[in-house]
Amino acid sequence: MVVKFVVNSKKRAYKGPPFKRLIDVLRDDFGLTGTKEGCGEGECGACTVLIDGQPVNSCLVPVGQVENCKVETVESLGSSAELHILQKAFLEEGSAQCGFCTPGMLMTSLAWIRNGGSDKSQEIREYLAGNLCRCTGYQHIINAVIGAVREYKKAKARRKGLFLPSPRVSGERAG
């Protein structure tokens, strides 16, 4: 069976069993390993991707279900030259520690700011409650999302881009 859908603005065709989990298709078939598996049962949110703009646990979605959908993963955010305002905020606020919940956390936060979410911490906490983090105690993540919401609104008002130049990185350590 062939399932056609769009991943990070690129048309993709998946050939194989339609019940294969979306997370496995992304990681194994497409090599998009930014999406992480933490529990495999939709509790931790590490595997969160956006399907047609909505945050979804990709470990619970059979790939057959995303036919003709638009899927976005963490790899769609930023490049080596520029970071998305969310990534920049996460970096500056110390929101990523071990980094394993980070891709899912970013994707849920992305949906929040795109859908016009507020900068109120309690509302953000509620929206992010499906993404578990064991390192940070959440405060630094909430701080980053608050900052990003404000930046996003400013950027939209000025019709400016959402990407900011990436800080210089030394070394090749990808681990």
Binding site: T73, L83, Q87, L91, G99, G171, A174
Partner: peptide
């Protein structure tokens, strides 16, 4: 140090 790599997946 390794922040950007983690944030970009």
């Amino acid at each position: 140090k390794e922040g950007i790599f983690k944030l970009r997946g």
